[in-house]
Nucleic acid binder design. Structure first.
Length: 293
DNA sequence: CACTTGACCTGTCCGC
DNA sequence: TGCGGACAGGTCAAGT
């Protein structure tokens, strides 16, 4: 799933729906989806009240009033869907969006005192939810290593170029997918940004000019912001906190558009493989810089 | 260290 | 219709 715009869209929904709700029970049928011990769940989660929902990189942070937080990574197919009287129920237009819950992919159910529920669904079981002391979150390996938020005001073009250049010998696509270079870009937005900046994804970083990297910096920010505005991309599984799909793919220029015509030059968009990932390019607009990889 | 590849899972689609 | 293989939006660990 879920790259930065999708996780941010889920966050905004949950931030509106969850604060103030008290948790009365949590059930899971797949240990890896929620590996905390029952004793920790009873001591720090059951009975707690949600105070806020934040995001860092592609991770959601659900803060509780117990000095603990639930941290959630949706990985490829995770969903966090809330159902309560205010947004679902008989006759409500949202009621049919995700079908009946729980379903086959439901891994964790959080029950609230008022009868509403939060469902963590994850078809491929790569995602996880973990209960951690809030103060320890910055110390876990992922947060110690992860790069800056690309949409934050203090993420400068100079910072971006410096970080990307540390990956001099890899492909530019692998570099921007690397979460320690910058946070939040995944396969869809890597392809869209590289197309916008007219850079071939297989170009080695050392062969990409500073001028191109400046264009790429702006492209990443523009593409991520547009996708947030559209509620993210729903290629297959992704839905927001109320079960709605995002509409960004209608605005995508290359992702999943192989065989279609490039709107800039009229050539045919191709699908290739770069950095082990399916990669979409216009071979006319995006020429390989320097020696072939 | 920098870099690449395979593993973690289930479901779907495509060719035979 | 069945079956095998490739592939799917993300990270890790282990390999070179």
């Amino acid at each position: 799933m879920p790259e930065l715009p999708e996780v941010e869209t889920v966050r905004r929904g949950l931030a509106r729906l969850l604060p103030g709700r008290q948790i009365v029970a949590v059930e899971t049928d797949w240990n890896k989806s929620f590996p905390n011990s029952q004793s920790d769940v009873q001591a720090f989660l059951v009975g707690s009240t949600i105070v806020g929902v934040e995001r860092r990189a592609k991770v959601l942070l659900i803060e509780l009033n117990t000095k603990y937080s639930l941290i959630v990574h949706l990985k490829m197919t995770g969903q966090l869907v809330f159902r309560g009287e205010e947004n679902f129920g008989a006759g409500h237009p949202n009621d049919s969006l995700v079908g009946k819950l729980p379903d086959k992919s439901t891994r964790v159910i959080v029950d609230f005192k008022d009868g509403s529920k939060l469902f963590f669904n994850d078809q491929r079981k790569f995602g996880w939810m973990r209960l951690l002391p809030t103060a320890e979150i910055p110390n876990i390996d992922f947060f110690k290593k992860v790069g800056p938020e690309p949409l934050s005001a203090d993420f400068t073009v100079k910072d971006f170029i410096g970080r990307v250049r540390r990956r001099a010998n890899t492909t530019i696509k692998a570099a921007i997918l690397d979460q320690t270079v910058l946070a939040g870009v995944g396969n869809i937005y890597a392809d869209e940004s590289l197309y916008a900046a007219k850079i071939h994804p297989a170009s080695r970083v050392r062969n990409v000019s500073d001028a191109k990297l400046r264009l790429l910096y702006q492209a990443i920010r523009d593409v991520l912001q547009l996708s947030i505005d559209k509620g993210g991309s729903s290629d297959r599984n992704y839905v927001d906190a109320e079960g709605r799909r995002g509409s960004y793919l209608a605005f995508a220029k290359v992702f999943k558009r192989q065989g279609q015509t490039c709107e800039r030059c009229g050539h045919t968009i191709e699908k290739i493989r770069v950095a082990g990932r399916g990669t979409h390019i216009c071979p006319h607009c995006q020429k390989l810089s320097g020696d072939p990889s």
